[in-house]
Design a protein around this nucleic acid. Sequence first.
RNA 1: GCCACUUUAGCUCAGCUGGUAGAGCAACUGAUUUGUAAUCAGUAGGUCGUUGGUUCGAUUCCGACAAGUGGCUCCA
Length: 644
Amino acid sequence: MINVTFPDGAVRQYEAGVSALDIAKSISEGLARKVLSAKVNGQVWDASRPISEDANLQLLTWTDTDGKSTFWHSSAHLMAEAVESMFPGVKFWVGPALDNGFYYDMDLGDKKLTEDDLVVLEKKMNELAKQNNAYQRKEMSKAEAIAYFTEKGDEYKLDLLQNLQDGSITFYTQGNFTDLCRGPHIPATGVIKAIKLTNIAGAYWKGDEKNKQLTRVYGITFPNQKELDEYLLMLEEAKKRDHRKLGKELGIFTMDEDIGPGLPLWMPNGTIIIEELEKLAKETEEAAGYKRVVTPHIAKENLYITSGHLPYYADSMFPPMEMDGEKYYLKAMNCPHHHKIFAAEHKSYRDLPYRIAEYGTCYRYEQSGELFGLMRVRCLHMNDAHIYCSKEQFFQEFKAVNDMYLKYFKIFGVDKYVMRLSLHAPEKLGQKYVDEPALWKETEDMVRKVLIDTNTPFIEVPDEAAFYGPKIDVQIWSTIGREFTLATNQVDFNSGRKFKLEYTNKENQTDVPLIIHRAPLGTHERFIGFLLEHYAGKFPVWLSPLQVKILPISDKFMEYTNEVKAELRSAGIRVEIDDRSEKIGRKIREAELSRVPYMLVLGEKEMTEGKLSVRRQGKGDLGSQTIAEFIGTVVAEIKNRTEE
RNA sequence: GCCACUUUAGCUCAGCUGGUAGAGCAACUGAUUUGUAAUCAGUAGGUCGUUGGUUCGAUUCCGACAAGUGGCUCCA
């Protein structure tokens, strides 16, 4: 007999060799039907795998993340079975579970999959699922496995085998499909009730663009149709707040073929948002001791040779323009220009920290396939600044930048993000990273300490640092789930020397400053793209391109309407009148859809009382207010940058 | 850049297997002067992304290019 301990601490005795599925059955048949896999001593196992020793056991079902993963990974195998039955001779690479669904990479030879094929595949998968075939686990020696795949001529699985230890190699079979796989899997295919293959994509083998491109099919499955329907509905809803759709609807930005890909045109409404953001940045930076600078959009080649961006990043820059026998480049970053401002006047330790800021316009030649609405563009306006400081000042300066991030996040109600501390990889010193092991350790420790001291949750990611130093990136997700770096805060102990930046220290010696590169509001493009989705187009009053729309009941009240408008405007409020001869219902509907935060309905009653009927977007009628009351509210919301 | 798909009126979309196009909304004109999410009528608007080819004839079939979409790679 063995002792099995459950998550609630209860201990029960079973025969050795009992499976998690047996145990579930002993509790209830209903539970047994729901079990997908089990966590045995912290490892996720097949529910049917015999347990031979005392163990901690957690039964995993659809409501557990690990249970879902098992379900989706098994679904990938089911898809592979369907693909193999349709296209014999197909070779498979890997087919993992994702956060939402699964994919499988495959080599289909010359066969090109179409969307029609997906429909047929879904049908086949449904048939196979109904057969309720068990997933059977089989251990195999490495030699046997190699022989098996050599005979099949499957170079992909042979490649996978190379990195596997003999004794740990397992195969899984369900129906007519057998695959090298570490598992675990669900007991049988029958629980997969709703299947949707979502898209076909090319994916480089092993993620290396020099390798052959395999066919990747993405899909998602559920234990019932209802959840699939809900998932598809959620995707539809998400599309409605896609910044590309909202940007067009609200007149924020536009793209034009004649201007060029990745080059957004900011329309009047978008420009108002840009100006409000810059106002916020300027206020915040002035209070934090930054000075503003302005630099040209182009520079000579030599600047980028000094910075080290050429030739290594030449691919990401627009090709040079030749003028007077010199090559000029559009700037892809502002740092070298700012370094030259630092170097223009001699600095002493009394001038440090020296902080200069600019909403700098940069141009980057992003690959055509990478462009994505406002989130990934070729012309960007960066909330950039550089801080030049001594080693002693670094901690305080870096912390102040971190505090500025958090302050901004509070203003915008940004709560779904991950702070990522990007570190170097010691084995790549001298190649990918500047060869200064001591400086790396020192700065990484300082950056980590800032995060810990400010109680900022973060994750550490090795081998993701900039070549000149560690950094903190703020990761966010677009509505459709794509990940982006919104903001960045970087340490640079390299450019100071490269640009021969110096200051005279207290001991009257020459010293090289540390540099902090920071962009808490990222770029206008990405930040406004993010805000559009974050607010679903319903900007807070201070950011809203139009703040108040006045809706007169009829043109009999135009005189009063114009008076009200003039008063609001002189209070600094962005206001417009809907003077069409439409019914009030129509005006309200369209004002609501345009997401203007406040609407004022003015008619006979308001005119005689000298009041306003106030309506808030999404909330309906707020009742009657005096002009002074209303102006007071709106002006306070603007001044305090109130979110709602 | 690579794989797949898409491109029809300002917007959202329809248009069986080739015979030069249609709806709703928006726009414009007129009527209506309206009380908290769509007043009515009329008018105008498209060389069907561009460009080659096949064909008596191409929005429709094939190719190239451009832009976009979903991924891959990339993101200093």
